[in-house]
């Protein structure tokens, strides 16, 4: 029996399909979900969300939120989810550079600005990683 996966953001439903397995960036580390998993509710960190279906693997970048696993339904509620093919790798690299430059002067930053720069850096890194995974394994 397949897993029914839905990925939903406040703006729209990003993904809905029957899949074989998902690998999610839980707040405590990556975790894999197969059919017949025990009910689970976990916070998600920013990271790669991988979906396996019929030997093909798709990757999405997700940024926070939750995953609700109940029976064979997996619902991911996240602030933002971007399929690998929609990520602009060049923009992400620029964002990383900007964030790194900002963080290089960490001493002069306020705590809020530093936190914002760190978050931006983390988002950029996730996007870069997701878009690179796609290039290594074209589907």
């Amino acid at each position: 029996m397949p897993l029914h996966l839905e990925v939903i953001t406040p703006e729209q439903r990003v993904y809905e399909d029957d899949v074989d397995m998902v690998i999610a960036p839980g707040s405590e580390g990556y975790l894999g979900i197969l059919p017949h998993h025990a009910p689970l509710l976990t916070a998600l960190g920013p990271g790669e969300f991988r979906v396996k279906k019929g030997g093909v693997e798709e990757t999405l970048a997700v940024f926070g939120g939750f995953m609700d696993v109940r029976g064979d339904r997996v619902v991911v509620l996240t602030d933002a989810a971007e399929p690998a093919e929609e990520i602009d790798a060049e923009r992400a690299r620029q964002a990383r550079e900007r964030a790194e430059e900002t963080l290089a002067q960490a001493a002069t930053l306020s705590a809020a600005d530093e936190a914002r720069a760190r978050a931006a850096l983390q988002r950029a890194l996730v996007r870069i990683r997701v878009s690179e995974r796609r290039r290594r394994r074209p589907t």
Binding site: G26, S27, E28, P39, L40, L41, T42, A43, F66
Partner: peptide
């Protein structure tokens, strides 16, 4: 109520 596993814990979620 289902016996949920919470990660990291119910309060955080």
């Amino acid at each position: 109520p289902l016996q949920y596993i919470f990660e990291p814990d119910p309060e955080t979620v």
